[in-house]
């Protein structure tokens, strides 16, 4: 049980000859809430897909929950990046959340009562149980995001991976989603990636910066040097929470 949920060792990945990740080493410990930040195109989604086993690294080793990524899938909850396509897909909240059970119950004629219990529990955790019959297109962005978190939780995962969970959600809703994550976190390890570095610091335990290479920190404090290496333009980072830290906007001379 005390195995590290995610262990990446010198992982590199190239897409059509373009190097996306270079020698990334990352350890996520049990119960941690890690935010991976970095610019768009910095390889954040690629990193998640490697942890999920959807992509194979060209070099390096990946261990997830003590095994290989594909075998670990049943214990991973995944909240993918949002697409416009899903907004008008004809499906109810309830059926969407049940999808989170499909991995363990594929090719059976119906869902088991366990599956329905898990779905109900997950919807209750994100406070969306009252909306179970609503078509997902008729929810607000924030509500829809909660439903996708519930879908990931319905599989009763040990590791939760989230890709830009607060993109296209307004600031109030963002805070709501982070508060929700804090609430459900208890015995869950969470890795989320985001290019939105404004809000996260007060909620997460650790921050890693990814811009092709990994600049990983065992704390929430990010050195300005790292930011300069990662982003080529001025970056404003406000890290409030404990420990308190504010990084000034830096200027190129």
């Amino acid at each position: 049980m005390n195995v590290n949920p995610v262990e990446l060792h010198e992982v590199s990945f190239a897409y059509n000859g373009t190097e996306v990740l270079r020698q990334v080493t990352l350890t996520v410990r049990p119960g941690e809430f890690l935010a991976v930040i970095g610019p768009n195109g910095g390889g954040k989604t690629t990193l998640l897909k490697i942890i999920l086993g959807l992509l194979r690294p060209s070099e390096g080793t990946v261990t997830v929950l003590g095994t290989d990524p594909v075998s670990a899938r049943a214990q991973i909850g995944y909240v993918p990046q949002r697409s416009a396509h899903e907004r008008d897909f004809p499906i109810s909240v309830w059926d969407t959340v049940l999808m989170g059970r499909l991995g363990r119950r594929a090719f059976r004629l119906s869902y088991h009562s366990d599956d329905e219990d898990a779905a109900r529990e997950a919807l209750r955790a994100v406070e969306m149980l009252d909306y179970q019959d609503r078509q997902i297109g008729r929810l607000s962005e924030g509500q829809r995001q909660r439903v996708f978190v519930a879908r990931a939780l319905a599989g009763r995962p040990r590791l939760l991976l989230m890709d830009e969970p607060t993109a296209s959600v307004d600031v109030v809703m963002q805070a709501g989603i982070y508060q929700l994550l804090q609430k459900i976190k208890q015995d869950l390890t969470i890795v989320l990636v985001t290019h939105d570095i404004g809000v996260i610091a007060s909620y997460v335990d650790k921050i890693a910066c990814l811009g092709g290479e990994m600049f990983y920190h065992d704390s929430k404090e990010i050195g300005q040097k790292d930011l300069e290496k990662m982003y080529d333009c001025p970056v404003e980072l406000i890290a409030h929470g404990v420990p308190h830290r504010v990084v000034r906007e830096h200027r190129h001379d």
Binding site: K49, L54, V70, R73, P80, L102, R104
Partner: peptide, 8 residues
């Protein structure tokens, strides 16, 4: 992608 990630 989600379907693949959930093991289908």
């Amino acid at each position: 992608d989600y379907a693949a990630a959930s093991g289908l």
